[in-house]
């Protein structure tokens, strides 16, 4: 579910082999959420699913790997065309 974000400027990122549409200025978490992906990590001890929680960079639940760079907070990391996102 998303607003009109200017179709002509939209681009794609990938998450676990899946293509995710994104708009300029959107965070990776927002793009994933808009595509219906709400969890993208499992916890170390109990393997519980995690995704977005605080949404503003405080809680670190939403960690992802972007183009090989680890430990990025999906809620703060702006999506760029072609980003390869893998579960943190």
């Amino acid at each position: 579910m998303t607003f009109d974000t200017g179709a002509e400027t939209r681009f794609e990122i990938s998450f676990g082999g899946r293509t995710i549409p994104a708009a300029p200025g959107q965070t990776i978490a927002a793009a994933l959420y808009a595509a219906g992906v709400r969890s993208w990590r499992t916890t170390r001890f109990e393997g519980r699913p995690r995704g977005l929680f605080c949404g503003i960079g405080v809680c670190f639940d939403c960690l992802v790997i972007v183009n090989g760079t680890e430990n990025l907070r999906a809620c703060l990391t702006e999506a760029r065309p072609g980003d390869e996102v893998t579960p943190g």
Partner: peptide, 14 residues
Amino acid sequence: TAGGAQALLKGNGV
């Protein structure tokens, strides 16, 4: 969080 939902909406249009 309420602020997280708000940030998603205001900052990302989601």
